[in-house]
Design a protein around this nucleic acid. Structure first.
Lengths: 138, 138
DNA sequence: ATGAATTGTAACTAAAATAGTTACACATAA
DNA sequence: TTATGTGTAACTATTTTAGTTACAATTCAT
């Protein structure tokens, strides 16, 4: 199971996007996510490096740098995920065995396809879709 | 990053599928995967529950119960994975905030789509494709 | 029947990942 | 100049992951 960073990152961006009139601080976001403000700052720091938001130490709040239609879940996912590969492959299989010797390369390409299917779908979904769905909830 | 269980499970099934003349024991598989035999038995136990292989305590080796064309990576994935959901969603968001209140349901459907894209691709790939690729390596 | 080899599983361990926390430097602005 | 923020390092608790030890139960050759 993949960690909650994407989940929290989307939460952060949704709040920033829908409150651009008044500054949304990490404390305020943390209260909505229900976690520690540092967790928010840590993730927002990654979103900042990815060019999705900006912020200044001392100045409260974060500012969205793109239109919500131009931010895909894939961008957010890649901003917060450190590992490139979705699936782990066991290491040091026995090269004496023909299967052990070739399994890693084989799995690499099989897993890559699966990962790309996932990423293509994440690229389709935009922050605007999330906000749209959020606001049409009961 | 997803754990190595799928990776190891595919390795196991590849060995079982390509050595149906002589019994492939968990010790033998473990030597190729390069891990402890118990790790192999633990995963093969899950493959057994999923109806992909069979085995008998005392009797060496595992037997494939399906044609390699009829075993998809999705079947293997679902056999070894305990959690239904690919992405975690942070829990207890603040219901006082309209975003906190609706974020989980929103993320649920967004993540479900992504997961289904992944699973559709895993369903396309068969054990036979893996073995094909394995045997055409240099 | 006996004993070696094997599967099946419980229980424990070490290491890594995950999320949360404390502490504090530094920036901003009233 | 003081209160309020961001940014980040360092530490901690919990969970997950993979590996290991131990052993019951089963099969089968002798």
């Amino acid at each position: 199971m993949i960690n909650t960073k994407l989940s929290v990152a989307i939460h952060i961006l949704s709040m920033v996007a829908t409150s651009q009139h008044q500054p949304v601080t990490s404390d305020y976001i943390a209260a909505s996510v229900n976690t520690n403000p540092v967790v928010i700052r840590r993730i927002s720091s990654q979103l900042k490096k990815a060019g999705l938001i900006t912020a200044q130490a001392g100045k409260p709040g974060f500012i969205l740098l793109k239109n919500i239609e131009d931010i895909s879940l894939l961008m957010i996912y890649q901003a917060v995920q450190t590992q490139d590969e979705l699936f782990s492959i066991h290491n040091n299989p026995n090269p004496q065995c023909w299967i052990g010797k070739n399994i890693q390369a084989t799995l690499d390409q099989a897993f890559l396809r699966a990962q790309q299917a996932l990423e293509n779908e994440l690229a389709e979904q935009k922050l605007s879709d999330i906000i749209q769905h959020l606001s049409t909830q009961k």
